Simulated assay, not measured.
Amino acid sequence: MSSSDKSKAKLSQWDALMLESLNAYGWSKEERLRRIHASELPQDESKFKFDYKLLTVAAASDPATFEDAVHNGYQIKFSTLRGISSWLLLALGEEAELSLEPGQESVSAKLTVEERDRLASTLSYGWVIHGEHTGAADEKSAYRIEPLNRL
Score class of each variant (00 low, 15 high):
88 L>Y: 00
143 Y>G: 03
142 A>T: 15
123 L>R: 03
142 A>R: 15
114 E>F: 03
126 G>Q: 11
58 A>R: 07
118 R>V: 11
105 E>C: 01
83 G>I: 10
43 Q>N: 06
144 R>K: 14
97 E>I: 14
51 D>G: 01
105 E>R: 10
28 S>Q: 09
102 P>R: 12
102 P>N: 01
126 G>N: 08
92 L>V: 05
64 A>L: 12
122 T>D: 02
102 P>Q: 06
76 I>T: 04
79 S>I: 02
96 A>L: 06
39 S>T: 05
126 G>D: 06
42 P>N: 13
89 L>D: 13
38 A>W: 07
125 Y>P: 00
90 L>N: 07
127 W>Y: 04
126 G>C: 08
124 S>D: 02
136 A>E: 14
33 L>H: 04
81 L>W: 01
35 R>E: 01
117 D>M: 07
127 W>R: 01
135 G>C: 09
63 P>I: 08
112 T>E: 06
106 S>C: 13
135 G>L: 12
31 E>N: 08
75 Q>P: 00
98 L>S: 02
99 S>Y: 07
72 N>V: 02
110 K>Y: 10
31 E>V: 07
26 G>W: 11
135 G>A: 08
64 A>F: 06
35 R>Y: 04
111 L>F: 06
109 A>M: 06
56 T>G: 05
141 S>V: 12
23 N>G: 07
96 A>N: 07
124 S>M: 06
115 E>Y: 00
43 Q>T: 12
27 W>R: 03
72 N>M: 08
123 L>F: 03
69 A>H: 09
107 V>K: 05
75 Q>R: 15
51 D>N: 13
54 L>V: 12
126 G>W: 13
66 F>H: 05
23 N>R: 13
108 S>Q: 15
47 K>H: 09
101 E>S: 10
86 S>N: 12
93 G>I: 15
127 W>I: 08
104 Q>P: 00
108 S>W: 03
37 H>S: 05
60 A>P: 04
54 L>N: 07
82 R>A: 10
33 L>W: 10
26 G>I: 13
48 F>V: 00
135 G>V: 09
63 P>R: 11
28 S>I: 04
122 T>C: 09
94 E>H: 09
27 W>D: 01
143 Y>H: 08
61 S>F: 14
42 P>R: 15
124 S>A: 07
132 E>Y: 06
86 S>M: 10
80 T>E: 05
